[in-house]
Design a protein around this nucleic acid. Structure first.
Lengths: 409, 409
DNA sequence: GCCACTTAATCCACAGTGTTGTTTAACTGG
DNA sequence: CCAGTTAAACAACACTGTGGATTAAGTGGC
């Protein structure tokens, strides 16, 4: 506010010294849990186990493992991954891709096999000597529960390690009208019904997609617009206590970006009531300084545009709502996405949310057009655009994916 | 382009399975070096050493260590960090903040002290028992060289571990006209002059800020607009070979964001010829899918705006260039920054570059105004705005900061 | 002035990680 | 059939952080 600052060394700034990645200190919050930076032997072991599992998963889903070309079954140029009696990845390949020794990989794989997470599923073709033994994930070794707490619907689902939805339940609710208690009771009931007689010790945990931003740390709802009774509720702790399962929480659009594997630099554009985006940048989910990252709907696109509910003029969301035709609405979104792709250098955009699912082809076509027009340079032509394969379950599935982070790192 | 996609499962998409943070596989590139995901005991040790150094640095620079309040000298509410005979941080505090045992911290500190990186610099006040021994960085234990390869100027400087510029040299060049060879010869000469008789084994390495984006991996110049002779040059390897020092490379605006410590969610807005931004999000430097992250100047702000050199209409950069008065130009930038802050939920913006340094107060005032107007909610009022304290050396100092990552993690 | 109490830091034995060197398993090719 | 080659396991080992006991250096009550 004041204009008293001099040209360098502004008093509002506390910065000193150049540096590494970040200040480092405010303990990094991940989905409502605090993680300290030091690593002990247990952390080392878990990290490497997660690395191995992650590599195995990437290999068996056939996606983005080597050169993002995903054929995976036939002989590559380098002569690897030639499957004969099954699918998977061998220990030697794991060693090469992880940077660990073959011996270390053997031990890790042994542990994971004993835990039931991995299994030998075939033999690779010989490369001149003993053929490789192929390893794969056992998808049903563990499950994750995903919950989407929407304004008018509660979704609970169970996903396996391959990220498939094994069962899902949708129940209409009135988040604002009912208030927390009855909704949480219902949530508990529905999760119980969902899990039935399944062994609870194979359920990794519960991921919740909240309808709005969260508090700085700790999984407390920050401010649910139009539902004051929810504001300030320590939702994570509350659900964890009721269900007795490890619980993580994330804003809905942010959860959505975890609904499927993908590029380390991607966005999930969520077009429901509001317009939000979930961001994965540099391989990490982005939450921002106050878990508000991805407020995609309120970037200004046109100073002469209509006034938005946020108070400003020309927001994407307002332009979208005021668009005369669906095509015009999709085009507005396309412009905004082009800005996003260019600013963050993304190479994958996934669309989700009710509005998109109502007219997926329209949105895909228009947004493709906008991207092609506004990013004509060939370097930008590799942007992948798609609608979330999990459709209306994307956000809940992403919440489940949040839990899988416990295994895959 | 085609409209043949169905509502879910678009053919252009290779995604399957929900999931963890990212696909994991394309080996994470950090400033032109490949890092494999597996971690061995050496990596563990280095990580913890970096953690300790980072905590010590945060404590001695007095910034953002505990609650971003940075008083640091007097008694905190919790009764910690009460300095008596010096500044620094004690082993117990390091243990608490890192999550490691006091014993582990003792060993790590011992190693770092033997390496000359840390020193005991005083005693804390007693908290009822034996007073804490305070530790601090030894700033001159190591140095980093930072290079900014500008279009018309070459900057080389030496920074110490506290991030202070110990010596700097500025030489006019003509990047496009001269071509690579003479410029690289000059660069070598200047670094030699800069380092003089200093022991080379205490120079951690060289960081280079390139005038444009880099190739996917490996530190190759991608496309230096207007200087075709530089396109495709493997600059990192070339400089590393000539100087015999570990070399890292980064795009100039991205390097700038490392010129000072700061928030884990911050941007360095670089207003020179073009308009770029360096981004640190979630504590990590963001490079994007093709090292193009931060193309801040080409977000569309006004569909009726003037045509930009990039081919589109209404880009920030074009609007800024066409602004009738300096105030109007600053206001355009303010709008764009407001979009940025909101989209990524940043809490710190640092301004740099020639244009800003020519009229810092104007820019600060106008941008503050834009932020206050467009982000009126109190939750957004905590955004810190400042001009880079290192002024014209910011980008080169950031390049040096890139090298410090080797120590601080 | 003394002594119980408290907190910081170190000493010592130890569990568990990945590594190195060697051996066994399994297939290719002349 | 056997040398050559690659995959994976076995055995001894180095080095990490951990846990428990010990020493160092203050405070405060009497």
């Amino acid at each position: 506010m004041s204009g008293s600052s001099t040209s360098s060394g502004d008093p509002t700034s506390v910065t000193t010294g150049p540096g590494g990645t970040s200040t480092g200190s405010p303990p990094s919050t991940a989905a409502g849990r605090v993680t300290l930076p030091g690593a002990n032997l247990t952390a080392l072991r878990d990290h490497n186990a997660a690395t191995v599992l992650s590599l195995v998963r990437a290999a068996s889903t056939g996606g983005a493992a080597e050169h993002a070309d995903g054929a995976g079954q036939t002989t590559d140029a380098a002569g690897q991954t030639e499957a004969v009696g099954g699918t998977g990845i061998s220990r030697v390949e794991l060693a090469r891709e992880s940077g660990l020794t073959a011996q270390a990989i053997s031990k890790i794989v042994q542990r994971l096999t004993e835990d039931g997470l991995l299994a030998e599923t075939g033999r690779g073709a010989s490369t001149g000597g003993k053929p490789r033994t192929l390893l794969s994930l056992v998808p049903d070794a563990r499950w994750a529960v995903g919950v989407q707490l929407g304004r008018d619907e509660l979704t609970v689902l169970r996903a396996d390690l391959a990220g498939r939805v094994m069962a899902a339940r949708h129940v209409p609710i009135d988040l604002a009208g009912w208030g927390p208690r009855p909704v949480l009771d219902l949530l508990g009931e529905q999760v119980d019904l969902l899990l039935g007689a399944l062994p609870r010790d194979r359920v990794l945990g519960v991921g919740i997609a909240s309808p709005g931003p969260l508090d700085q740390r700790g999984g407390v709802l920050h401010d649910v617009t139009g539902a004051p009774s929810w504001t300030g509720l320590p939702l994570r702790d509350e659900v964890e206590r009721r269900l007795g399962l490890p619980t993580l929480i994330e804003k809905d659009s942010t959860a959505g970006v975890l609904s499927a594997l993908g590029s380390p630099n991607r966005a999930f554009v969520h077009l429901d009531r509001g317009l939000g985006a979930g961001l994965v940048l540099g391989g990490a989910v982005q939450r921002g300084a106050r878990t508000n990252a991805g407020e995609f709907g309120h970037q200004m696109l046109d100073p002469t545009g209509p006034r938005c509910r946020c108070g400003n003029a020309g927001c994407v969301e307002a332009l979208w709502a005021a668009a005369p035709t669906p095509t015009a609405a999709a085009r507005v979104l396309g412009e905004a996405i082009a800005n996003l792709v260019r600013l963050l250098d993304l190479d994958e955009i996934v669309l989700g949310g009710r509005e998109v699912l109502a007219a997926p082809d329209l949105y895909l076509t228009e947004i493709r057009g906008s991207l092609a027009a506004r990013l004509p340079d060939p370097a930008w032509q590799t942007v992948t655009l798609s609608v979330a394969p999990s459709g209306p379950d994307a956000v809940a599935l992403g919440a489940a994916g949040l839990v899988l982070t416990r295994l895959f790192g």
